[in-house]
């Protein structure tokens, strides 16, 4: 089973990389780019067929290592 994990900065946390990307897009002529927030995306193959178990594992991975709760949120999607 594959877990697709998105890690994003919490609202209100400054994102200088996102801002720099936004400025670069504006410099390339993309008008109307109001805000860019950069995050992380991970694909994790889990050797587990039970959806509930895999979901619990992915959640635990996020809380223990992948995301820092001080500044980040995460979402988990599972794909058979």
């Amino acid at each position: 089973m594959k877990a697709r994990i998105h890690i994003t900065l919490k609202p209100g946390v400054h994102d200088p990389q996102g801002r720099a990307i936004g400025n670069a897009l504006a410099a390339l002529g993309f008008a109307g780019v109001n805000d860019v927030r950069q995050g992380k995306y991970l694909e994790i193959e889990i050797g587990e067929t039970d959806r509930k178990t895999a979901s619990a594992m992915a959640e635990e991975m996020c809380t223990k290592l992948l995301a820092n709760p001080v500044i980040e949120n995460y979402t988990v999607e599972l794909e058979d």
Partner: peptide, 16 residues
């Protein structure tokens, strides 16, 4: 900070 022994986090410098 990652271990939780101290509060907060050290993020990338504002000017990158």
């Amino acid at each position: 900070t990652e271990c939780g022994l101290l509060p907060g986090i050290l993020m990338p410098n504002t000017d990158l």
